[in-house]
Design a protein around this nucleic acid. Structure first.
Lengths: 306, 306
DNA sequence: CTTAGGCTATCACTATTTGTGATGGTTGTT
DNA sequence: AACAACCATCACAAATAGTGATAGCCTAAG
């Protein structure tokens, strides 16, 4: 009966080109490699290599068997990975909830290296409003949440700051508000406002309704689209609209007393319902190496955080 | 490092329910099974069974590992099958060519058990006209061919009889020939004939053109469809039309001197370009256990053929 | 042609692993 | 209590695998 080790030696010889090179690669004696191949050949009653010359040449039958040998070793690697996850008690699944207006490709690039590091763990990314994210983490349905922070102390969850997001008051270029050199609160109140409101009908504390005419939507992208179609004005995250402003399909209104929009903190909530495992630990480290800076995610400066 | 044998013992214990039952099944000492499991547990640093009671209970971690262990053993079985085919020199591929009007689901049922018996061998079934089938076998592109036999001795291929196929002269019920109580050759010649002719422009020796008005097609199913649309008459295999006759969409013409149609032999050609291997031998045995009886394939009567 | 480097095979030896049969303790049923 | 079935451990023998030393062969360079 042949062994996993013999198959591994067989594959390594094919990849290395010679018995001695394989031995060096495997950190074994060359004679052991020679014996392992000879024993495998005896075991399966097939000549795998032609040894007429100085270097072994894979036989036709050896070529036919090589892919299956690789397949077996691949399955064995999966078994070993499963073992490792059982031993180290890696999380089988990790749920990250994030405010829908904070997620972009930069943020996903923070997460993706974790897939290579923890190939067995399933990740779920839930995009929701800040209030819903908070509830998901509080209930333990998500281990990690990323939200706009309201400065209120969380007593049942851990929290750390990730940065600041800028909110900007916008309108379509054709809107009447766009023709004003300065926009007062009274001006804003005269036109329809497009307001973000969660499923729980909660409005963010810095973009709540002040007009009498309001259209609600439960995600910021819809708000942006309504404004682009001339439905009214809104205060929205700069992350979502910076390209539209450059292209001229939206304009930032010059609102009195708001020289550069409104900054609001972005933070990370961590559930206390979950035992901390290696995957969650790694995720938190990854997040702490990055920050939200007004309109984009960026690598955090190397400061002394100890 | 764990071995294939240890994984096999693990799976057998799970399937048998106890170490001693697995030992009986594997024809081994119970103490060997006990040791194999214990050694596997040491090797992977995981408890696979809870042994608090008299019979072992698979642990949660054991449950997680079992399907992967099975997957590894499945791949190993495939490796062993490949080995067997290399050792016994099973044919990698077998090509069967058959006249297109002789193939139906009964015929395919003759072939399908071979898939279980030779899981590694690839089968190709080529449906063509009798002349093309003969050429495929002669050239060695197909190992086996099934044709209408013309009685001519084949000097470069082996041959054996499979049965008799009945050809029937048909027309659409609305055709003028369908109104005659007896159809003479002179009647047939007055109407368009639909004739089978191969890619090499060869006509079968019992259904060649006798009318002056002819439509050719290179397969019998097309011929049948033309006749059903009232294009004329044709002589076709009963296998293809027996349901249409029962349904009344075609009628068998009462041709003088042909009380029950025309019987023509069906035979099997075997290429001499191929070494006979276990798969080809099995296929020939399967074919010889069956015969073509006028309008269907059937199991051959058990006679003394020795 | 000679030399040097790289190759594989074989040997002697040690260490490790695996299998059997005997034995003993526990559990579950009658 | 008796019996059957279960798993664990032991002693022992057999099988397997690894190292380091040695020898022979091949190939390229000088």
């Amino acid at each position: 009966m042949y062994s996993f080790e013999q198959l591994k030696v067989f594959i390594t010889v094919c990849e290395s080109g010679s018995f001695s090179a394989a031995a060096r690669k495997l950190k074994r004696a060359q004679s052991g490699v020679s014996q392992a191949i000879a024993n495998l050949e005896i075991s399966i009653n097939q000549e795998l290599f032609n040894r007429d010359k100085n270097t072994p040449v894979l036989t036709t039958n050896g070529k036919a068997l090589l892919p299956i040998a690789k397949s077996i070793l691949h399955q064995q690697k999966y078994f070993d990975q499963k073992l490792e996850s059982l031993t180290k008690q890696y999380e089988n699944e990790l749920v990250i909830a994030i405010d829908e207006s904070c997620i972009d490709s930069d943020f996903l690039q923070i997460l993706t290296p974790l897939a290579d590091k923890f190939p067995i763990t399933h990740f779920e990314i839930i995009s929701a409003s800040t209030f819903d994210v908070e509830e998901l983490v509080r209930s333990g349905k998500a281990q990690v949440g990323i939200i706009y922070a309201d400065g209120e102390l969380k007593v049942d969850m851990d929290f750390f700051l990730l940065g600041q997001a800028r909110f900007i008051t916008i309108a379509s270029p054709d809107h009447e508000l766009a023709q004003l050199s300065t926009v007062q609160d009274a001006d804003l109140k005269r036109y329809r406002q497009c307001v973000h409101r969660s499923a729980q009908q909660k409005e963010l504390w810095f973009s709540y309704a002040i007009s009498s005419k309001i259209w609600y939507a439960n995600n910021h992208q819809t708000i942006v689209n309504l404004v682009q179609q001339g439905m009214g004005w809104a205060s929205v995250p700069e992350l979502l609209i910076k390209h539209s402003i450059q292209q001229g399909s939206l304009i930032a209104l010059p609102v009195a007393h708001e020289h550069s929009g409104w900054l609001t903190p972005v933070g990370c909530l961590i559930s206390r319902s979950h035992q901390s495992g290696p995957v969650l630990t790694s995720l938190i480290e990854r997040l702490q190496e990055n920050s939200f800076s007004h309109d984009h995610w960026t690598k955090r400066e190397k400061t002394f955080t100890k």
